[in-house]
């Protein structure tokens, strides 16, 4: 069971990347539990990043899926200039490691590079860092209970959003 769990967990990470790159927002959101925590902490200094989102600033901190839906709706409304046009993204997710497993779920870490090409300006960026996931089991399926995104290169070029992280 451990092996198939591990492979299911890794697949989920890659599936998330696939859905984001194809801009399939509804199915992407469907990977998340309703009360999922989505957290990209800010950095405190060269080495330490924020540990307490209640008293420290994060780049993104959401505690339920509705807040991710807000971001999706903002893009779909075509009212935000940040998404007119949307950039092309290629998420590379690698170094996937199962670091914990119990009856409730699986803890997974990974590295990421998101290649972003902005056709508006013919400009490219890479956003890279680490992911820490808590995946939860329910009725034989895995869903994302929590995702932490530690962005290594946090001097943000103009904009970042859920689809470039």
């Amino acid at each position: 069971m451990i092996d198939s769990s591990a492979s299911a967990a890794a697949d989920l990470l890659l599936k998330e990347a696939w859905l984001l790159d194809r801009k399939n927002w509804p199915d992407w959101l469907g990977l998340y539990a309703v009360d999922a925590r989505y957290w990209a902490p800010a950095w405190l200094n060269e080495y330490d990043y924020v540990s307490d989102p209640e008293t420290q600033v994060s780049l993104i901190y959401h505690t339920d899926r509705d807040q991710l839906q807000e971001r999706i709706s903002r893009i779909q409304s075509r009212k935000s200039i940040t998404a007119l046009p949307l950039p092309r993204t290629v998420h590379i997710v690698s170094n996937v490691l199962i670091v914990g497993s119990d009856a409730e779920g699986i803890d997974v870490t990974a590295s990421f590079v998101v290649h972003v090409f902005d056709p508006r300006t013919a400009r490219e960026h890479c956003h890279f860092g680490h992911y820490e996931y808590r995946l939860k089991r329910a009725a034989g399926e895995l869903s994302i209970a929590a995702k932490k995104i530690i962005l290594a290169n946090d001097r943000v070029p103009t904009i970042i959003d859920f689809y470039t992280l």
């Binding site: 990209a40 008293t55 600033v57 994060s58 901190y61 971001r71 903002r74 940040t82 103009t158 904009i159």
Partner: peptide
Amino acid sequence: RIRNYEDFFNPSGLATSDDNVM
């Protein structure tokens, strides 16, 4: 204060990024 700051003022939020692109 923190949640509202993240929403509005961050380039990863829902508003300042619109200004930056503009």
